[in-house]
Design a protein around this nucleic acid. Structure first.
Lengths: 336, 336
DNA sequence: CTGTTAGCGCTTTCAG
DNA sequence: CTGAAAGCGCTAACAG
């Protein structure tokens, strides 16, 4: 037998309304009665049915987090930040993975239009060029906050790393280390993070009187094998780079694999720098200089902003919060 | 204006019941009518209210995942496995982090007793010695499947790595590498994974005629500083180990930090082996031999079993599924 | 301070 | 094949 308000009311000879009020700690209920209600509720281990309340109140105290992947320390840490704030505010967190697939992204946003969530935190999939599904959410007045991979064409709040700065300082780091021909491994041309990091890279080159060589740009795909081949071709070309800037971790890893294979065929002084949140990797790999994003804080900040939107308390908040990355330098020069 | 069944019914001059039936593809509705309904629903982008259905049906098509942490590749990958199966089966995934804190774990399980989830996937927090909150869930008939960190005292299905085997082969690996004094870094005495890995360790020692030296056992706590101090003391003692088996990644990392600090004071041939799912770390750190758990498959398997329980289709399934880990050997001998 | 009642959106008898 | 109506559990008027 389920224990619900009706049951409590019967056992206490009270109306369900009074019990409901007592449970919500209303001030218009006799302290004595309140106590009796709470005691019985505790004794029977009463738990309110969230669907009944949600149906009534038309809100769910639940948010949806839509991300491309999770097997990547950045998103794990972001989820942690999100969850911490959510738990503190009494919100529940639904997690959805798109696997970088727009079709799935659209399906998920559709699903969430039924009222299941009060708001959405989102990092767009790399393919996202169309934005109709995001507009639909706006039309339904479901607040969104973008984080990391934002949709620049839309006006909802955004929380990101200082991607341009990061690209700039990563490149300068390689220049300072003596690199003259610096390759750039791009995640995707459809993502603002990629474009901004790339702009930082080209600007840093220019500032240092280095010209941008198109043959040193590789745009990654979802196909690891393709990426591997492209990187290998570049590193074994007649005029290979002496430095590699991976704008995303997976491409740095692939680069390491390539280096391992061709070990003897390339100059051993190729320097690699990469975006990465695997502090472990950075620690264990003396050769990997990394740009580490404030993943946890990005999640925290995004959730905090979403919470304010949900509460409609018109706190002032920045439309676009930019958090700084950290450059963790390593000493060794060779990746191997 | 919300678009709900009532709205559709009005616009089509049909009853609410018929529309509902059409949407659920009931066979007792005129194909013509069905078509009209579906067309309008698509046009108005109708999304059913999940709370109304859940309230009615007394089920939520949602599962809860309760884990200690997420900033650790094991749980990230497990979530991915869980999410993949859940998405395929039309389930939603709520994620809760306990931060290894039983109080939070209890709070969360309480929260989930209200019907918010149909079932729970859980990896217990390291402190969990009490199990009342888990019994409560059973009493409420909320199916649970434990994964990785299981509660052996309870009968719900479990999905784990072959912890005993892993402990055994990790230890043998060190023995084969020439180690005679192998330290064991334990995660917690309250966890079955810790106990089993430890048993594998002692059995492997015995098999190789090595005696277990209590001074080489360190039981980790949540306090990193304490762990650091304990490991440092051991490594700098008069009779230090020549091999270290970290039964959990974080303790391996701490060991590396210690080694870095005392670099010149210990024999440089201390070998370290650790549980770790950071394939990146393993790849980049030529010195780290790792035991990698099948995290993704553990998540997948656990969710699959839970799904069967939810469907009550009495498929035969094993009460305890044990998946094998992989020993990834590295060549280098020194951790530094 | 307490009780009665309507209704959130949906599904499902039960009647036609 | 379609409609009317009850009810899932809870909250919030409104009435006492």
């Amino acid at each position: 037998m389920e224990v619900n308000i009706k049951r409590l009311a019967e056992e206490l000879n009270l109306s369900i309304a009074t019990v409901s009020r007592a449970l919500r700690d209303s001030h218009e209920v006799n302290p004595e009665t309140k106590k009796r209600v709470l005691q019985l509720a505790a004794k029977l281990n009463y738990q309110p049915n969230p669907f009944a309340s949600s149906l009534r109140a038309q809100k769910s105290k639940t948010i949806g987090v839509i991300i491309p992947e999770v097997d990547n320390n950045f998103f794990s840490l972001a989820i942690k930040g999100i969850e911490d704030v959510a738990q503190e505010k009494g919100y529940h967190v639904l997690v959805y993975l798109t696997h970088e697939n727009v079709i799935k992204e659209v399906e998920i946003t559709r699903l969430l239009q039924g009222g299941r969530v009060d708001g959405i935190l989102m990092s767009v999939s790399s393919e996202t060029a169309h934005i109709e599904h995001l507009l639909e959410l706006q039309k339904k007045n479901i607040p969104i906050v973008f984080f990391d991979r934002v949709c620049e064409a839309l006006d909802p709040p955004k929380v990101t790393t200082d991607d341009y700065e990061s690209g700039f300082k990563a490149t300068e780091h390689l220049v300072e280390s003596g690199c003259k021909r610096i390759a750039f491994l791009q995640i995707s041309n459809n993502l603002s993070i990629g474009r901004k990091r790339f702009k930082g890279y080209t600007d840093a080159l220019e500032k240092n009187q280095l010209s941008f060589d198109e043959s040193l740009l590789i745009v990654g795909t979802k196909n690891e094998v393709e990426n591997y081949a492209a990187i290998k071709q570049m590193l074994t070309s007649a005029n290979p780079p002496d430095g590699v800037f991976a704008s995303v971790e997976s491409l740095a890893i692939t680069t390491y694999y390539v280096c391992k294979e061709i070990e003897r065929k390339i100059p051993s002084h190729v320097k690699i720098i990469s975006f990465s949140n695997l502090t472990t990797a950075a620690l264990l790999a003396p050769s990997l200089t990394t740009i580490t994003q404030p993943a946890y804080n990005i999640g925290k900040e995004a959730m905090t902003i979403l919470f304010r939107l949900l509460k409609k308390n018109n706190y002032p908040y920045k439309k676009h919060v930019v958090l700084s990355s950290t450059l963790i330098k390593r000493d060794s020069t060779s990746p191997l």
